[in-house]
Design a protein around this nucleic acid. Structure first.
Ligand SMILES: Nc1nc2c(ncn2[C@H]2C[C@H](O)[C@@H](COP(=O)(O)OP(=O)(O)OP(=O)(O)O)O2)c(=O)[nH]1
Ligand SMILES: [Mg+2]
Ligand SMILES: [Mg+2]
Ligand SMILES: [Zn+2]
Length: 587
DNA sequence: GCCGTTTTCGGCCCGACTGTTTTCAGTCG
C-alpha cells in the first residue's frame, strides 16, 4: 500500500513550499497528506477501480494532486517533488522535529551555513555559528542544542493505555490545588485516540498565575518549553509533553471545544461560524464584539446550529455535516457492553482461573463472559487440543450449574481462539468446534503473505460455518507491526454474506479494527464484537479503549453484538452460523 | 492547490508565547 509513501511526499512538498514562503499551498498539501495517511483503502486500488475520477473524489485532492498520485503509481516518482528536493537538499522533516525549528529557520540555516540535517545542525550550534545570524541569537542557539538532546531521547507517540494512568495522577494533583475551579483532560486524550502525542489539560481559574507556577514546579518535569499567563508547556521525565491552558469560567465551553480538537475539526467548525458571520475562538462565539456562547460546549455547538458532538468523533470526517442536519448517529456508550467474548484463562497459560475471570467480569457489571483460550497450533502459548477443550467444557458446565443453583443470571460461554493456518483451515477438528458455544479464529503466524493469498486465507475461514468471529482482523500492532496485506473490501463482502463477526480488539497496542475500518464495516452491514483479549483479569478494563474506537467509527449499539443480552447474543451467533452454513452449502 | 445550496474566483481558523526585533516573525496549540 503506497498511501503512506505518497502522504510523506506531500508533507515534504508542503515543507519545501513553506520554506519558500509560498502561501496556502502548503496547507493544501498537508491536508491531502493527512487524508491519505488516514485512508484505509489503498489509493492504488482506488485508482485501479475508478481512475483519476476516483482520486478526485478524495477530499482535498484536486487535478494537480491527482496527477501527482497517478505519476507516483505509474513511475514511483513525482517530478515536482524531486525538483524541489534538488533545489533545497535538506532533510527538513528531521530538522523540524527539533522543538522551535520550522521551515523558515531551516531555510536560513541552509542558505547561510549549509545545514542539511540534524548532524550539521548540532555541529553548527556547538561551534556557536548560529547565534550571530540575523534573526537568531544566543537563546535560539541554546534552545536548538537542548531541543536536539530532547529529540534524541524522545520515544515518539505513547499508547493511550500506557499513558492514561499517569494522566489520572496528574489530573488528581492539579485538581487538588485550590486555585483550580475545574479541570478536564483535553486534546487526543479526551478524544481517546489510540496514540497520544502529548497530554493536554484545560483549567478554569481566576488566578492563572498561581496555577501556572504550580504546574511548572510539578515533580517529574525536566524541561519547561514555555510559560505564560494562559498557557504553559513542559516535558515530563517519562518522555511526553504536557500542555495546560487556563481560561475564565465564561469561556470554558469554547475553550474545551478548542482544546479537544482535533485541529481539523476546529478549523471546520470555525468555518461554519464564519459562514454565519460569527467568530469562534477558545474565548467564545462572537457576533461582532458580542459574545453569544461559550460557557458550555453544548451552547457553542447549538449556537452554530449543530448537535453536540462526542469528542471521539471530532475528526472532521463528516461529523460536522451530520451535526448540522441533526443526523449524528446514536453511537455506542461506555456502559453498553454486556459481556466480553475474548478472554484467556489459566488453561492456556493466562494469569487467572476461569472463576477469577468470571468474578472480574461480574465486577464489570457483565451478564456473560466467553472463555476463548488459544488452541494447539500455538505451542508457546500452551494452546489447547481437542481433549483439553472437552475437559474445559466440563469445568465450565460445572461452574454454570453452580450459577444456576445460585440463581444468578450470569453465564460462562466456552469458545476458543483457533488459529487460521496458511490455507485458511483451522487447527481444531470440526467435531470439537461444534461442541463450543462459539468459535473465534485469528491469524497468529505467517503475517507476510502476499495480499491475494492472505485475503483468500481469511475468506476461507469465514466460509467455515463453525467460525463465528475473526479476532484482530488486520493484525496491526501499534508502533511495531503494520497490518498484514489484505483486501479489506473483499473481506467485508464475505463477512456480510457469511454473517461472520469482526472483532474490535481493545488491547492497547492492537485496537484492531481501527476506527476507519469499523466505519467501513458498519457501512458494509457487517456486525462487530468489542473484546479485550484479556490474559489477566485486570485487563477486562481495556474494554473502554475498544469502545472509544467504535465510537470514533460511528458504531451504534446494534452494530456491536455484545451490547445484547445473553439470549439475543446466542441467537445472533447461532443465526449467523446457520446462515453461513446454508449459504456456503449452495456454492 | 482546493473548493463552492450565498461563489468557478477569491478566499483559506484564530490566538499564545518566545526571541529578536525597535514593532513582529516564527512556531506552536
Ligand atoms: N484552532 C486550532 N486548534 C488547534 C490547532 N492546533 C491544535 N489545536 C487544538 C486542537 C488540538 O486537539 C488541541 C491540542 O493540540 P495537540 O497538538 O496536543 O493535538 P492533539 O492533542 O489533538 O493530538 P496529539 O496526540 O497531542 O498529537 O489544540 C490549530 O492549528 N488551530
Ligand atoms: Mg518542531
Ligand atoms: Mg495533545
Ligand atoms: Zn487472544
Amino acid at each position: 500500500m503506497k498511501n503512506q509513501e505518497i502522504a510523506k511526499i506531500f508533507y515534504e512538498i508542503a515543507n519545501y513550499l513553506e520554506m519558500e514562503g509560498v502561501a496556502f499551498k502548503p496547507y493544501a498539501y498537508q491536508k491531502a497528506a493527512l487524508t491519505l495517511e488516514g485512508l484505509e483503502k489503498d489509493v492504488e486500488e482506488i485508482y485501479k477501480e475508478g481512475g483519476r475520477e476516483a482520486l478526485l473524489k478524495i477530499p482535498g485532492i484536486g487535478e494537480s494532486m491527482a496527477e501527482k498520485i497517478e505519476e507516483y503509481l505509474k513511475t514511483g516518482k513525482i517530478k515536482y517533488y524531486e525538483e524541489l528536493k534538488k533545489k533545497t537538499p535538506v532533510n527538513i522533516e528531521e530538522l523540524m522535529a527539533v522543538e522551535g525549528m520550522g521551515p523558515k529557520k531551516a531555510k536560513v540555516l541552509y542558505q547561510k551555513l549549509g545545514i542539511r540535517n540534524l548532524k550539521d545542525l548540532e555541529k553548527a550550534a556547538k561551534s556557536h555559528k548560529i547565534a550571530s545570524l540575523f534573526g537568531f541569537g544566543e537563546k535560539t542557539e541554546k534552545n536548538i542544542l537542548e531541543g536536539i538532546n530532547f529529540l534524541k531521547r524522545s520515544k515518539g507517540r505513547f499508547l493511550l493505555g500506557e499513558i492514561l494512568p499517569t494522566v489520572k495522577e496528574v489530573y488528581q494533583k492539579l485538581k487538588s490545588l485550590k486555585e483550580v475551579e475545574k479541570i478536564d483532560p483535553a486534546g487526543s486524550v479526551r478524544r481517546m485516540k489510540e496514540t497520544i502525542g502529548d497530554v493536554d489539560f484545560l483549567v478554569i481559574s481566576k488566578n492563572p498565575g498561581k496555577v501556572m507556577d504550580f504546574f511548572v514546579r510539578f515533580p517529574g518535569i525536566i524541561k519547561i518549553w514555555g510559560k505564560g499567563s494562559t498557557k504553559s508547556s513542559v516535558r515530563m521525565r517519562e518522555g511526553f509533553d504536557m500542555d495546560i491552558r487556563v481560561v475564565p469560567a465564561r469561556s470554558y465551553g469554547s475553550a474545551l471545544q478548542y482544546f479537544t480538537g482535533s485541529k481539523e475539526h476546529n478549523i471546520a467548525t470555525r468555518k461554519i461560524a464564519m459562514d454565519r458571520n460569527l467568530k469562534l475562538s477558545e474565548y467564545g462565539l462572537f457576533r461582532g464584539p458580542k459574545m453569544i456562547a461559550g460557557k458550555t460546549e453544548e451552547e457553542v455547538y447549538k449556537a452554530l446550529g449543530m448537535q453536540w458532538i462526542p469528542p471521539e468523533m471530532r475528526e472532521n470526517q463528516g461529523e460536522i455535516e451530520a451535526a448540522l442536519s441533526g443526523k449524528l448517529p446514536q453511537i455506542i456508550g461506555y456502559k453498553d457492553i454486556k459481556g466480553d467474548l475474548h478472554c484467556h484463562s489459566q488453561w492456556d497459560g493466562g494469569t487467572n482461573t476461569i472463576m477469577e475471570m468470571v468474578k472480574a467480569a461480574q465486577n464489570m457489571g457483565y451478564e456473560y463472559i466467553g472463555i476463548s483460550d488459544h488452541t494447539k497450533f500455538l505451542r508457546i502459548e500452551h494452546g489447547l487440543d481437542e481433549k483439553k477443550l472437552s475437559q474445559q467444557r466440563k469445568e465450565i458446565d460445572k461452574l454454570n450449574t453452580k450459577y444456576k443453583i445460585l440463581n444468578t443470571k450470569f453465564k460462562i460461554l466456552q469458545g476458543c481462539e483457533a488459529n487460521i493456518l496458511n490455507d485458511g483451515s483451522i487447527d481444531i477438528r470440526d467435531e470439537a468446534l461444534k461442541k463450543l458455544d462459539y468459535v473465534i479464529a485469528g491469524v497468529h503466524s505467517n503475517f507476510k503473505m502476499p495480499k491475494e493469498k492472505m485475503t483468500e486465507r481469511i475468506i476461507n475461514v469465514m466460509k467455515n460455518p463453525d467460525i463465528d468471529i475473526i479476532s484482530h482482523p488486520t493484525g496491526r500492532i501499534l508502533k511495531r507491526r503494520d497490518e498484514y496485506q489484505i483486501d479489506f473490501d473483499k473481506i467485508l463482502r464475505v463477512a456480510e454474506e457469511t454473517g461472520t463477526i469482526l472483532e474490535i480488539n481493545s488491547f492497547p497496542e492492537r485496537l484492531d479494527l481501527n476506527a476507519e475500518n469499523i466505519r467501513r464495516a458498519k457501512e458494509a452491514g457487517v456486525k462487530m464484537v468489542i473484546n479485550t483479549d484479556s490474559h489477566h483479569k485486570d485487563q477486562l478494563r481495556f474494554i473502554e479503549f475498544g469502545i472509544a474506537q467504535a465510537r470514533r467509527g460511528w458504531a451504534e449499539k446494534e452494530d456491536i453484538i455484545n451490547t445484547q443480552p445473553l439470549e439475543k447474543l446466542l441467537k445472533l451467533l447461532n443465526n449467523y452460523a446457520s446462515r453461513a452454513f446454508s449459504r456456503s452449502s449452495n456454492f
